[in-house]
């Protein structure tokens, strides 16, 4: 019988703990598929964040470390510098990457550290129960912005991909989404390209995945995806923000 669908070898058999409708599962799968398709799972070392993906070390079928909150890019830097032949990635949420870990993120990018960051932007702190994140939209209601994010008090959201694209260090930055089959395919290609670049020694890559959090957004999964398209994508436009490979090829990034 022909096998038409199977679990990537890059994922373990551990059942995911994520909420129903959460997009983490999709992105985990895309990362595992990318590692498998490039044949690099066996030399991959991942770094789990603090946040909903804290247990990622149970799910990726490769060597894994679990970092302090926000420090995953620093831990990944240490791992990569120790064994440059390994493929090293972090998997981080918006609070971890764009609030407490801003310095580690920006400087890993500025150094052109040859690691890959998978950045899940769902505009909220998920694990702690739905507080305002650095990427929470203006007027968005969260547990700690109960009247909506007031930019005169809480400031504005951080556009990570655009921010990092101002640096010379990064080799590849793309913002993708997993809200539709088409966008999932694009995300898969982007993640694969990021790991491809790392394999080729091109340097720092970050894939920002605009994601949902149905539980803490207080929506069902379908409505959450619609909300993502309606509210998040206008603020966080999808696209390639840096592509050193394309620039070298003469194409316009």
């Amino acid at each position: 019988m022909a096998v038409v669908f199977e679990k990537p070898k890059g994922l373990t058999d551990a059942p995911l703990h994520y909420c129903p409708g959460c997009t983490h599962g999709i992105v985990h799968r895309l990362v595992a598929e990318a590692l498998d398709s490039l044949g690099i799972t066996e030399k991959a070392v991942g770094v789990a964040p603090v946040g909903c993906a804290v247990f990622a070390y149970n799910y990726f079928n490769c060597d894994m470390a679990q970092a302090a909150h926000g420090r995953a890019p620093a831990v990944a830097t240490g791992i990569k510098r120790a064994n440059p032949a390994n493929i090293v990635f972090t998997y981080q949420g918006d609070g971890d990457l764009a609030a407490i870990g801003t310095a580690e993120t920006v400087h890993a990018a500025a150094r052109g550290e040859n690691i890959t960051i998978i950045f899940i932007n769902n505009a909220i702190y998920g694990m702690t129960g739905g507080q305002m994140a650095p990427t929470t939209l203006p007027e968005q209601v969260t547990q700690t912005s109960p009247y909506g994010r007031d930019v005169t008090v809480a400031g504005y959201p951080v556009r990570v991909s655009e921010l990092l694209a101002t640096l010379d260090g990064p080799a590849y930055i793309e913002r993708v989404s997993v809200d539709s089959v088409k966008n999932v395919r694009k995300a898969a290609a982007a993640i694969r390209k990021a790991f491809q670049y790392q394999s080729e020694g091109k340097g720092f890559s970050l894939i920002e995945v605009v994601s949902t959090c149905p539980t803490n957004w207080g929506m069902n999964p379908v409505k959450a995806l619609a909300w993502l398209r309606e509210h998040m994508l206008p603020y966080y436009p999808l696209g390639v923000y840096r592509d050193k490979g394309a620039a070298q090829g003469g194409a316009d990034a």
Binding site: A68, R71, A74, V75, I79, A82, A103, E104
Partner: peptide, 20 residues
């Protein structure tokens, strides 16, 4: 590697130590 902070430096150490 001159890290961006002491916090980053010790976490780089943690990564390298974890890598053996």
């Amino acid at each position: 590697l001159q890290a961006e902070s002491e916090v980053a430096a010790i976490n780089m150490v943690a990564g390298a130590a974890a890598a053996g």
